[in-house]
């Protein structure tokens, strides 16, 4: 078995990354090769954020994705790319990014018809969209604008609350509380196609609970539950990524008795 080697280029990247305070990149590159047999990691999951509207309207929490990806890589086996990827609906690469993240705090202009058609096609043929209201308040401008676009995406359908036994609440962590930076609306909504939830809407500003500054400190207070609520928001994000990647894997019969037993025994904090 060949030993794991860092070449000069990798070493330089590592030193530069550490020195420049980019912990997510540095840690992900260093930690994954530390697997038992020194097999280097090859990222296959990328956190892809949708660009829309004016200026940085689409990016209310610029550091949230990297922070989340660092946690994802530390806690799970998901071979995630260290950096957020940004993409527009019209991009040729859209369909190479099956996980899409859409966030915002303000109202935004309607998408063009071709953009709506393209996003619908993306979702119906296997793509996944996580929508996050960065204001975390009912009736926000973003919320209203997204509801408008949703009715164009799926005419005649509604964003239905996901039931408590939905797979997304048991893909990695067992989750019984839906929170984000806020906890005002304790639920996720979504829409299904052929037994798969293709779009999940979080009204509580998930990414607000993930965002960190360049010193690694979380940027926003989490209300009302404090750090325990932040942990729950992180777990929910991880579960959503696992749902996008494995769909109903945790509904396979072999898992059901284990999960039911754990849910029965558990004393929820």
């Amino acid at each position: 078995m060949p030993p794991f080697r860092l070449d000069r280029r990798e070493l330089l990247k590592l030193l530069l990354a550490s020195g420049l305070g980019l912990p997510a990149y540095a840690r992900s590159q260093v930690r994954r090769p530390g697997s038992m047999f020194m097999i280097p990691e090859r990222p296959s999951f990328f956190f892809t954020q949708l660009i829309y509207g004016q200026g940085n309207q689409w990016l209310p929490h610029p550091t949230a994705a990297e922070s989340f990806l660092q946690i994802l890589v530390q806690r799970t086996s998901v071979p995630a790319g260290p950096e957020r990827k940004d993409i527009a609906l019209g991009s040729d690469r859209l369909f190479y990014s099956p996980f899409l993240y859409l966030s915002g705090a303000r109202e935004f202009a309607p998408w063009s018809e071709p953009e709506v058609d393209r996003l619908r096609q993306f979702l119906e043929y296997g793509g996944f969209l996580l929508v996050d209201d960065a204001l975390g308040a009912s009736g926000s401008g973003f919320d209203q604008s997204f509801q408008r676009e949703f009715s164009r995406l799926f005419p005649g359908e509604i964003l239905a609350k996901l039931p408590q036994d939905h797979t997304v609440f048991q893909t990695y962590y067992l989750i019984d509380r839906v929170v984000g930076r806020k906890a005002g609306r304790p639920y996720l909504s979504g829409v299904d196609r052929e037994g798969r939830t293709v779009l999940i809407y979080s009204p509580n500003d998930l990414a607000g609970a993930w965002a960190r500054d360049s010193f690694g400190r979380f940027m926003h207070q989490v209300e009302p539950g404090g750090e325990r609520q932040r942990e729950m928001a992180i777990r929910l994000g991880i579960n959503i990524v696992f749902y996008a990647l494995t769909v109903d894997y945790k509904k396979d019969l072999i898992h059901v008795p284990f999960i039911e037993e754990r849910r029965r025994r558990r004393v929820w904090p």
Binding site: R31, G34, S35, M36, Q74, R75, T76, S77, V78, Q170, T171, Y172, Y173, L174, E231, R235, F242, T246, Y249, K250, D252, L253, I254, H255, F258, I259, R262, R265, R266
Partner: peptide, 25 residues
């Protein structure tokens, strides 16, 4: 009839949660 096993957590991964809060088998 699909029986699947995915390696969701490797030995070095730390989920930062006790076993009973995990859905892993």
């Amino acid at each position: 009839d699909l029986v699947s096993f995915y390696i969701l957590r490797e030995y070095q991964d730390d989920p930062m949660a006790p076993q009973d809060e995990l859905a892993l088998i």
